[in-house]
Design a protein around this nucleic acid. Sequence first.
DNA 1: CCGAATGTTTACAGATCTCTGAAAGTTCGA
DNA 2: TCGAACTTTCAGAGATCTGTAAACATTCGG
Lengths: 157, 157
Amino acid sequence: MDDRDAQLREGAERLALTLTESGMQRTTARVMTALLFSQQETMTAADLCEELKISSGAVSGAVKQLIPTGMIERVPAPGSRRDHYRFRDHAWATLMGNQNTLLDSMWNAAAEGIKAAGKESVAGRRLDEMQDFYGFMQREMAALIDKWREGYDAGMR
Amino acid sequence: MDDRDAQLREGAERLALTLTESGMQRTTARVMTALLFSQQETMTAADLCEELKISSGAVSGAVKQLIPTGMIERVPAPGSRRDHYRFRDHAWATLMGNQNTLLDSMWNAAAEGIKAAGKESVAGRRLDEMQDFYGFMQREMAALIDKWREGYDAGMR
DNA sequence: CCGAATGTTTACAGATCTCTGAAAGTTCGA
DNA sequence: TCGAACTTTCAGAGATCTGTAAACATTCGG
């Protein structure tokens, strides 16, 4: 049983590492995966400090980054003065949805480049392909995420 | 005209910054966007050193990262001993395609977690949703990229 | 083969990022 | 309004990352 717990903790750390490698901050990723893999419904800041062996300041910083992205939420805990945190339902879909803003800036970067270079130029042609691609992705990704949401909610019933 | 060039260079730097913020290394991003926004078909390492004011070692390192991802390629330059680099066609589609390996590791992380936690547990239910989501995305993303490729190639004709 | 022209690797210095620890701030029950 | 229980902020130490310079490797014309 303790063995199971160790495996979970290890899995959490491994995923955190992957996320770190693709750009997320180390501590932020660790806090997120700790909440994801926890067998408790919610965890307090103190729980996170102990589990991850980090200071309360570090937890506070990570939480501050995570909440606005919609990955975790603060839940009121009746009878406790401590903040409780929970990994949100559909967090992954939210996360991927946020990527849309990135898609957006890519499209914009291409558009601005075309304005400066002209469509009929060496750079213009490259940027045109880029714009086409990101325009397409932007439209389709939003639809795709909705499709998953619907399918998942339907399966729940 | 020189003004146009300045705007292009600025656009390149701005995009590099965005990319850096979402996890790409600074110099790698700068080399990539320099090639993307360049009005030349290809650039040599020396061109990149001058344009970006960085050492040849830095260029070498960036190129080493970029080539395996499929974003740029080395092109043989008849009559020149120098290596020439070019931003690849469909590079963006390739880049997004590579994300599939990330989707894959997310799915795997979820699967391993479920194995350790059991499906019918607090963590198990969270991981089950995660696995469902990434399984879905993996299947659909590949299809989406193909769809864009087809559409774009058709438009070319 | 030699040696000039390039490309690659690497030790190290500087820049940057990230945590900690402690002080300051907030909240809430009494 | 006080003070205990927490959380947030922040300066600074330490760890990490990054780019340079120079040594080393490679390539190719002659």
